[in-house]
């Protein structure tokens, strides 16, 4: 059995004759979501390494994943553990954190359009950052987020709400935003 707590993600064993999605389809479908989650949780600089490690670990464990598994929750769980590993090793070396900007990027280059947003997300406390990423970027319900990060469903909901409130104060989208 692979070591990613796979049994939590679906009850049924994979049956012979049941159609199995090629892993490439998992990458095509969820690759963008996982990249955004990695950027939110780790920042743009470390996100690509975390993405690569997440999908390599997922590929290794994939044959054991039950056919009825919640693939998003499974991928986010792996990404969350990779982020914890990366944060631990980053804690042993000095980190440069950019200042939180008070207005949107004006460079007009599409590849830079999200830099300010990730900087604002990076300034959130870790629990809020994770709750915001896993709910608003990965689309996971709060109960699933609580199972991944620990604590209660209500605590996960509050962390996400607090995080979004802070982001609205520190990062302006240019319009009157509503959730």
């Amino acid at each position: 059995m692979a070591g990613h707590g796979i049994s939590r993600f679906g009850a049924g064993a994979r049956l012979r004759g049941v159609s199995v999605q090629p892993f490439d389809e998992v990458v095509a479908r969820y690759g963008r979501m996982v990249l955004r989650v990695c950027r939110a949780v780790l920042g743009p600089d470390d996100a690509e390494d975390a993405w690569a490690e997440t999908f390599l670990a997922a590929l290794r464990a994939y044959p054991e994943l039950p056919a009825d598994a919640n693939v998003e929750a499974w991928l986010v769980t792996i990404a969350h553990r990779k982020a914890i590993d990366a944060t631990r090793s980053a804690a042993r070396r000095p980190v440069v954190v950019g200042a939180v900007p008070d207005r949107p990027s004006v460079t007009g280059r599409p590849e830079d359009s999200d830099v300010d947003l990730w900087a604002a997300v990076a300034a959130l406390p870790p629990k809020q950052r994770a709750a915001v990423a896993y709910h608003h970027l990965a689309g996971l319900p709060y109960a699933e987020i609580a199972a991944i990060v620990g604590g209660t469903t209500d605590a996960a909901r509050r962390a996400a709400a607090d995080g979004i409130r802070t982001l609205r104060a520190t990062y302006r989208t240019g319009g009157e935003g509503h959730e």
Partner: peptide, 29 residues
Amino acid sequence: MSDLFAGLPDDSATLARLRDRLAADAAAD
């Protein structure tokens, strides 16, 4: 999804590069 994240870039070029990297890493492993 919050509107805060509504304008995120498409990232197609980055994802294509990451998928190539994944294929190489998977072969090596």
